[in-house]
């Protein structure tokens, strides 16, 4: 599998919720903004983290496509 993460940086306001629900997937900068835009996840065991992190984002800034 291959999941591609897109983060709309204009919407991301640094809640850090994505990284709470997907600590091994989503990375934050020092101010708490998500820097995982464009990341491709191939490890099947991380799928739930990818999805839960996306769905926890209050700004609806994250989208994920099956690449």
């Amino acid at each position: 599998m291959e999941l591609k993460i897109t983060v709309d940086r204009s919407k991301c306001s640094g809640h850090a919720r994505c990284a709470m629900k997907g600590p091994d997937v989503y990375e934050l900068d020092d101010e708490g903004f998500c820097i995982s835009d464009g990341k491709i996840v191939t490890d099947e065991s991380l799928r739930t983290q990818v999805i839960h992190g996306m769905k926890a984002c209050p700004e609806r800034a994250i989208s994920v496509i099956e690449a």
């Binding site: 306001s13 640094g14 769905k55 209050p58 700004e59 609806r60």
Partner: peptide, 18 residues
């Protein structure tokens, strides 16, 4: 699941102390 609550607000004023 999918708890995208906005208890700390949303947008540019999202709580700085969250």
């Amino acid at each position: 699941e999918n708890n995208r609550h906005i208890g700390f607000g949303a947008g540019p004023h999202r709580c700085a102390g969250s």
